[in-house]
């Protein structure tokens, strides 16, 4: 069998333009191990979760049969749950602009090959590799009312530092500060990657025109990375909707439920009170909220693209 005569039927049998070789069921073996994990550990629990959200299933009281929308109706009347939705949305509103704004600011300042920039990049990215428990340990100590770092510094000026952990209005902003400190590295790096894609010639032309740096920023740089700005905003919305560890460890949802996010509500309903149906229903609402927020943002991004 000569090689060239083999090549022809191979090409004809192919349907996917990027594929190489014959279309045969054997090839499915490549995806089989992953698909097994995907189906058993993602598709099945997703379906099970949806089913569960329509059941009266309390681990302590036992299975009470299907209840229709009752779990959802109860959630909509549950002040703790509604508070957690409000808290989560508020947290997203205050933290995402900080991630986008500060991430972009740092990226703009550190977008060169100098040693100085690489040094600062390491600092701002470094905290991202720490786990949430270490970060919260550190920050609980910073926020500690009598002997915390914040109070030590404020004390030098004869002031009293605000208490982020026990003041209702400050609990979520305090957690937002910790979160930005923890993972500002990712948005910064995404913006840096985008900035490096901008051709240098564009800036050289602007320099010839003696354009001010503000003008360069507004009329060249920002439009060039518009897609990345939308991408970072979408990623951060999705990430910050999942706020859990920081709130659980720093404030435990308090004071007076002021910092309890949805995921913590799910954790408490599902794994402390063992109300599985109820927790599953809350999970579905979180899922829908996240999808909705992400789609809304992409839609807004597209509108701006067109106009």
């Amino acid at each position: 069998m000569s090689a060239p005569s083999q090549a022809r039927p191979v090409r004809v049998a192919r349907r996917d333009a990027d594929a190489v070789g014959r279309r045969t069921a054997w090839n499915a073996l490549f995806i089989a191990p992953y698909m097994l994990a995907f189906l058993v550990l993602l598709v099945v629990p997703l379906g099970l979760g949806m089913w569960l959200s329509f059941q009266d299933y309390d681990m302590l009281a036992g299975y009470g049969g299907p209840v229709g929308w009752e779990n959802y109706e109860r959630l909509l009347g549950d002040r703790i749950f509604l508070g957690s939705v409000r808290n989560t949305i508020w947290f997203v509103i205050i933290s995402v602009p900080a991630f986008v704004g500060l991430g972009l600011f740092l990226a703009l300042l550190l977008n060169d090959d100098s040693r100085k920039s690489s040094f600062f990049r390491s600092i701002f990215f470094g905290s991202s590799v720490l786990s949430v428990t270490i970060v919260t340990l550190v920050w609980r100590l910073v926020y500690m009312p009598d002997r915390g770092l914040l109070q030590n510094i404020a004390g030098m000026f004869g002031l009293t530092a605000p208490n982020f952990m026990t003041t209702e209005a400050l609990a979520l902003p305090g957690i937002a500060i910790v979160t930005v400190w923890w993972i500002i590295g990712l948005p910064m790096m995404l913006f840096l990657a985008a900035l490096q894609q901008i051709p240098k010639e564009v800036y050289e032309a602007a320099a010839l025109d003696n354009a001010s740096r503000w003008r360069v920023l507004v009329s060249i740089t920002l439009p060039a990375i518009r897609r990345t700005i939308v991408l970072v905003a979408v990623i951060e919305v999705i990430l910050q909707f999942q706020l859990f560890g920081q709130a659980n460890l720093i404030t435990n949802g308090g004071p007076n439920n002021a910092s309890r996010p949805i995921v913590m509500f799910i954790y408490e309903a599902g794994f402390r009170d063992w109300m599985l149906g109820y927790a599953a229903a809350a999970s579905q609402i979180l899922f829908v909220l996240m999808l909705g927020a992400a789609m809304l943002q992409m839609w807004i991004g597209r509108q701006k693209d067109g106009g």
């Binding site: 550990l41 993602l42 099945v44 629990p45 997703l46 099970l48 979760g49 569960l52 999705i238 909707f241 999942q242 859990f244 949805i262 995921v263 799910i266 599902g270 794994f271 599985l276 927790a279 599953a280 999970s283 579905q284 979180l286 899922f287 996240m290 999808l291 992400a294």
Partner: peptide, 14 residues
């Protein structure tokens, strides 16, 4: 698009 939290309760039961 599926977040971990959407499946964690049934997964824990499984």
């Amino acid at each position: 698009a599926v977040p971990e939290q959407a499946i964690i309760v049934p997964l824990h039961t499984m």
